[in-house]
Amino acid sequence: MTQTPHLVVFSGSGISAESGIETFRASDGLWANHAVEDVATPEGFRRDPGRVLEFYNRRREQVRRARPNAAHKALAGLEQAGFRVSIITQNIDDLHERAGSKSVLHLHGEILTARSSVDARMRYPLPRGGIALGDLCDMGSQLRPDVVWFGEPVPLFDEACALVEEADFLLVVGTSLAVMPAALLLDYLNVEVPCALVDPNARALSPPGVQPLSATAGEGVPALTRQWQREGQLALVREAG
């Protein structure tokens, strides 16, 4: 065990939904009138890059309007209180960072960044505006959103697995554990390490050995972080009752 216990957080769309960002499974909002294969696959981008760029431009503006909620702030506050906190997120927004978290790994990319369509290492921050047809990388190829689309590899998956293997406590929040390969991360957790899932449907979603906390992210995460701050860092490595 490390001298300072290491809390690893695995967050999904449920935490951002409380900030007003529509989830992929929402029945209304940006996804409602778009087929996944048209706007979130490499094939869709090849067929109609303008439609894909416009879809992500709208999502990007939605992210910019959103604000970190109580769950984001609670995790950042725990880090500011001296806890060692690493966040692995499926979310492409920057709400964890805006709340103050310093160690955030974006499994599925970052919507506020563009990248080359021929070399994923060529990335360009988007502090304002979006991506238009004709916006090119330094190699002369069309820019695209720096997000992982369906059918594409997840380049940071190995790095995320290594973080989970280091964890002294794993907190899963706002994810159904249904999206692959991210759902496989729990397989890399050492068997003696405690794990908790915060979700309104936690009891139904929790795999064996995972403590369910049936609450929204905005309710459950602040409650846990207040408990840990009261009890100290060793509370992270004790199996919750």
Rank of each mutant, 00 (worst) to 15 (best):
L95D: 01
H96I: 10
H96K: 03
H96W: 03
H96L: 08
E97N: 03
E97S: 04
E97Q: 13
E97C: 04
R98P: 04
R98N: 04
R98I: 11
R98A: 09
R98K: 14
R98L: 13
R98T: 15
A99N: 05
A99I: 15
A99L: 05
G100V: 06
G100M: 08
G100L: 07
G100N: 05
S101L: 10
S101M: 12
K102D: 10
K102M: 09
K102A: 09
S103R: 12
S103Q: 10
V104P: 02
V104E: 09
V104K: 11
L105F: 00
H106N: 09
H106A: 12
H106E: 09
H106F: 01
L107C: 03
L107Y: 11
L107F: 10
H108Y: 10
H108D: 09
G109L: 11
G109Y: 07
E110G: 08
E110Y: 05
L112Q: 13
L112S: 12
L112N: 13
L112E: 15
T113W: 11
T113R: 11
T113V: 07
T113A: 01
A114Y: 02
R115P: 13
R115D: 02
R115N: 00
R115F: 10
S116A: 06
S116Y: 01
S116K: 07
S117C: 07
V118T: 15
D119A: 13
D119K: 12
D119C: 10
A120F: 10
A120V: 12
A120R: 12
A120W: 09
A120M: 01
A120G: 06
M122L: 15
M122G: 01
R123Q: 15
Y124L: 11
Y124D: 05
P125V: 05
P125N: 11
L126N: 05
L126C: 08
P127N: 04
R128A: 03
R128Q: 12
R128T: 10
G129Q: 08
G129D: 04
G130M: 00
G130I: 15
G130H: 03
I131K: 01
A132Q: 14
A132D: 15
L133E: 15
L133R: 14
L133K: 14
G134R: 14
D135N: 11
D135H: 12
L136H: 02
C137Q: 05
C137F: 11
C137N: 04
C137E: 02
D138Y: 07
D138V: 14
D138S: 13
D138R: 09
M139N: 14
M139P: 00
G140C: 08
S141R: 11
S141D: 13
Q142C: 06
Q142G: 00
Q142Y: 01
L143W: 09
R144I: 12
R144A: 03
R144E: 11
R144M: 12
R144S: 02
P145S: 02
P145A: 05
D146Y: 04
D146R: 06
D146F: 04
D146A: 14
D146I: 06
V147C: 12
V147E: 03
V148I: 15
V148T: 15
W149G: 05
W149Q: 06
W149P: 09
F150W: 11
F150R: 04
G151Y: 03
G151T: 06
G151I: 13
E152Y: 00
E152A: 06
P153K: 08
P153N: 05
V154F: 08
V154T: 15
P155V: 06
P155K: 06
P155T: 09
